[in-house]
């Protein structure tokens, strides 16, 4: 039982970092949601805030690591042009049912050699590769607001809700990236 270098990186990018992101988001959202007057004691506030500072910072850090590894490590393997120069762009994909050493996942999807697959690239990958970068930006700004205001968020419900909107926005962008990443790796895995 072993994993290739590429499989290891796709697991780090999608599964490991994605799991940390989800855990940090779930904990952070629950913490933010219940950060209301009457729900936490003074001692509880101190304990709750420490967790929120760590959780939101981890979520932001993990989001940056996810998009950086996705863009600079995994994506080049996805979009590689493997057909020899001068040949038809998708010549290396003829007769394949999965990407191979002569047919990158992008070429495989765009070539439609195994069903109508080009929309997975045109819609799924094109959306995922761009919008995912909104996740670390929103998560970083939200983490800053949580750390900057700290317990003061309890007395400012509107501001707390604004932070939740940014937090959920980061999650939504990550869901698009994560969901399409999982689907694409099923339809056209990195090999």
């Amino acid at each position: 039982m072993e994993l290739t270098s590429r499989e290891t990186w796709t697991i780090i990018h999608g599964l490991a970092l994605g799991t940390f992101f989800l855990l940090a988001f779930g904990g952070g959202l629950a913490g933010l949601w219940s950060l209301r007057p009457g729900l936490v004691t003074t001692t509880g506030i101190k304990e709750r805030m420490r967790r929120l500072y760590v959780g939101s910072s981890v979520m932001a850090g993990v989001a940056w690591l996810t998009v950086i590894t996705g863009t600079w490590v995994v994506y080049p393997w996805y979009r590689a042009q493997l057909s020899p120069v001068g040949e038809d762009t998708y010549a290396g994909c003829a007769g394949h049912i999965l990407p191979s050493t002569t047919c990158s996942p992008r070429d495989f999807l765009k070539s439609n050699v195994s069903g109508q697959t080009d929309n997975w690239h045109q819609f799924g990958m094109e959306w995922k590769e761009h919008v995912s970068w909104a996740a670390p930006i929103l998560a970083t700004a939200a983490a800053f607001l949580i750390i900057y205001y700290g317990p003061r968020l309890i007395s400012r419900p509107w501001l707390r809700m604004a932070v939740i909107v940014m937090f959920v926005g980061a999650f939504a962008a990550a869901v698009v990236g994560g969901a399409f990443g999982a689907f694409l790796n099923k339809v056209a895995p990195i090999v």
Binding site: P37, G38, V40, T41, T42, I45, I137, L138, T140, A141, F144, L145, Y148, Y149, G150, P151, R152, I154, S155, R156, P157, W158, L159, A162, M166
Partner: peptide
């Protein structure tokens, strides 16, 4: 504006903070 009276925060003796840095983070995002 929008500050609620929160007894739990009273014993923490927290000074108010300017909103400028928070606005900067929101607009920059």
């Amino acid at each position: 504006h929008g500050m609620e009276e929160v007894p739990e925060l009273a014993s923490l003796n927290m000074a108010d903070k300017p909103d400028g840095p928070a606005a900067a983070a929101m607009v920059a995002a």
